[in-house]
């Protein structure tokens, strides 16, 4: 009896228990305040709103896990989407063109990822500033190749149209892409040796090297994965909008990082899971949606958003510390104990 009760409490205190609690709390609040929250149209609008961030976040997770950060995802998306659009515009709407354009954009993304990986893994440059710099450079490049033009696709049809506007069982294509990529990322991170090594490299690169895990290889591939997902997000975006401009996806790195952090991903590396990221993205989407449904004065939207994010992260930190029995201790004496265990993916 006692053991069972303990088990239940443990489950409630665990990270997933806590996430479910937050979601249930939100849903209860919404049920009281605005029952329309539960309409299928609204659910789809939440999912569609987070799909683009989510696609990028599933790749960004790899980079953050190996201890890096990629602030250039917005410009990578813009570059990918622009190359894709330009190629299709220069040719036709046939399936062949579509696949060539798609592969071309992915190829460019791989090059960008290689570059980032090279700077981080081989030259040891801090990824925060490197990607901030490449963000400028890639936006510049996108502007340069489009000659600052706005590229509308007026006769979109075929696969180009379906990529962003297609529907499966009434679910928009970007959402499906997000789910597929999230499942793949979760599988790779959890079930494959490669994924485990990513955690190892992020947790302690030197120790990983000593047991024969090449941190360079894993860093390179993580940046490549991130750039590729960003590029896919860019292509989904142009296909949905049927227009490409160099400033599209600007500032996407902020919401993506928010989703990661709310999903309990440690930005220092080695900690976090795709499930957490999915939850984080969902919560960000629900918050934005709630703010409109409840009718918060729109001028204060960002303010409320910031407060809720701090609150969500604070609850997260508090419960994880409590589960480690740190809350009542004299914290000032032993702050290093506050760090959660490394290496083990949660969930």
């Amino acid at each position: 009896m006692n053991a069972e009760k303990g088990k239940f409490l443990k489950a409630a205190g665990s990270i997933w228990g806590q996430r479910v609690t937050i979601l249930v709390a939100v849903i209860v609040v919404m049920a009281i305040v605005q029952p329309r929250f539960f309409s299928s149209g609204n659910m789809l609008s939440i999912l569609l709103a987070i799909a683009f961030y989510g696609v990028i976040a599933s790749g960004m997770l790899f980079v953050v896990l190996i201890g890096g950060i990629d602030l250039a995802v917005g410009s990578e998306a813009a570059l990918g989407g622009t190359i894709f659009t330009m190629y299709v515009l220069a040719h036709d709407m046939s399936a062949g063109t579509f696949f060539t354009a798609f592969l071309l954009a992915i190829l460019v993304a791989i090059l960008v990822g290689l570059l980032h990986g090279f700077f981080d893994a081989y030259l040891g440059m801090p990824s925060f500033v490197v990607t901030l710099a490449t963000q400028y450079a890639l936006y510049g490049l996108t502007q340069y190749i489009t000659k600052m033009n706005y590229l509308p696709v007026l006769n979109a049809s075929g696969l180009f149209y379906q990529l962003g506007n297609g529907k499966l069982f009434g679910i928009p294509s970007p959402v499906i892409w997000f789910v597929i990529l999230a499942v793949i990322a979760a599988f790779v991170l959890k079930k494959t040796p490669y994924g485990r090594r990513i955690y190892a490299v992020g947790g302690n690169p030197h120790a990983a090297e000593l047991v024969g895990v090449s941190s360079k290889f894993h860093k390179m591939t993580a940046y490549i994965i991130c750039a590729v997902t960003a590029s896919i997000a860019g292509m989904l975006l142009v296909s949905m909008n049927m227009v490409s401009s160099y400033k599209m996806a600007a500032g996407y790195e902020g919401p993506v990082l928010m989703a990661l952090v709310i999903g309990a991903v440690n930005l220092m590396g080695g900690e976090g899971s795709m499930g957490g990221v999915f939850f984080g993205a969902l919560l960000v989407g629900i918050i934005n949606n709630m703010l409109i449904l409840i009718g918060i004065d729109t001028d204060y939207k960002e303010f409320v958003q910031g407060c809720i994010i701090i609150l969500a992260v604070a609850i997260n930190v508090y419960t994880s510390r409590k589960s480690q029995g740190l809350v009542d201790q004299k914290r000032r004496r032993m702050p290093w104990l506050n760090r959660p265990k490394r290496g083990a993916p949660d969930g």
Partner: peptide, 23 residues
């Protein structure tokens, strides 16, 4: 006091302080 990571605290508080300005 809340043991939040610096990165996310300041990223989110940037929005909050800008929100003060909106007031």
């Amino acid at each position: 006091r809340l043991h939040l990571s610096e990165f996310i605290t300041t990223l989110a508080s940037g929005y909050i302080f800008a929100g003060f300005a909106v007031f």
